Amino acid sequence: MTGRHAPETLIARYADGSLPDADAWSLEKHLESCASCAGRVSGAVRATAAGAVLADVRDAVLAAATPAPAEAPPLRTPRLLWAAAPAVRGAWLPAVLLVALGAVLLAHVAGFSGARPLLLAIAPVVPVAGVALSYGRHADPLHELAASTPSAGLRLVLTRTAVVLAVSLPLLTLAGLVLPSPGAPGAAAWLLPGLTLTLAALALGGWLGLRTATAVTGGGWLCAVLAPALAPPDGAVARHLSDQLSAYVGGAATQGGWAAAAALCAVLLAARRTAYDRLERF
């Protein structure tokens, strides 16, 4: 090289590959800091037979790196059905139907006057059990695959919870509507307690694991409601059960308390949402 730039003869020999290695290395070091010479070398290389090949390679690399044109988003329905499927299969759905039909048969066939209070006592734990049975390795043969997707964790749990609630709420409420029970709370009185217990199970699931949390919340509710009513001193099970349910779910003040508890559980669940990324470790 002469002066501050490489001579044309040196660049030409570099382009056709006849420049000795030591001189080629020196030229390449110079090109790192000299844009002018780099441009001249690039032009010289493009003018050789290898230039056309390098241009084709460059175009192929750019084509591979360029994002494809935006396409219409794929349908989300198959993905949603795949995520929600474990919530509507297995033993849980028949169990919901058994609870609803069993209460109707108790009232209209066996003549049991406490059928509606009994249904209202059991109904809040049905969605809780459904959530526990719809998530995890025991419920989904594709759980390992599902857990590795971006929609795993709390998002997947909430999807299945929504399906469980969408199935159980109308079935059990309709069953309650056809049950005669004077003095018992209304057929929809269990909805807020059921929602609260479900959210409580989900919130506790971040600490205890989902199955343990559902056992604690559902078992606690059944013990609190059924145990005092099933062994009354005078044997009037139906009346005592109705009184228990009126105390736990009847009245605007009680329902307002359940609504506040549901909101609190939702806040706790949001605060602990990252715990569901590792839920199956419990």
Rank of each mutant, 00 (worst) to 15 (best):
G3E: 14
R4D: 10
H5Y: 11
P7W: 05
A12W: 00
Y14E: 04
D16E: 06
D21T: 14
D21G: 10
S26K: 00
E28L: 04
S33L: 03
S33F: 07
A44S: 12
A49H: 12
V53E: 14
L54R: 13
V57E: 14
T66D: 07
T66S: 09
T66W: 11
P69M: 02
P69H: 05
E71C: 11
P74G: 12
L80H: 14
A83G: 08
P86M: 08
V88C: 12
A95P: 11
V99F: 02
G102R: 08
G102L: 12
A110V: 13
S113V: 14
A115G: 07
A115E: 04
L118H: 08
L119Y: 02
I122G: 09
A129M: 05
G130L: 02
G130S: 05
V131K: 00
L142D: 15
A146I: 00
S148D: 13
S148I: 00
P150M: 07
L154E: 13
V164I: 04
V164G: 01
L165F: 03
S168Y: 06
L171D: 09
L174R: 11
L177D: 11
S181I: 02
L192V: 08
G194T: 10
L197D: 07
L199F: 12
A203R: 06
G206N: 02
G209S: 04
L210V: 11
R211T: 15
G220Y: 12
V225I: 14
A227S: 13
A229D: 06
P232M: 01
P232T: 01
P233W: 12
G235F: 05
V237I: 15
R239G: 15
A247V: 03
G250I: 00
A259Q: 04
A260V: 14
A262F: 01
A262R: 01
A263K: 02
V267G: 07
A271K: 08
R273C: 09
T274W: 01
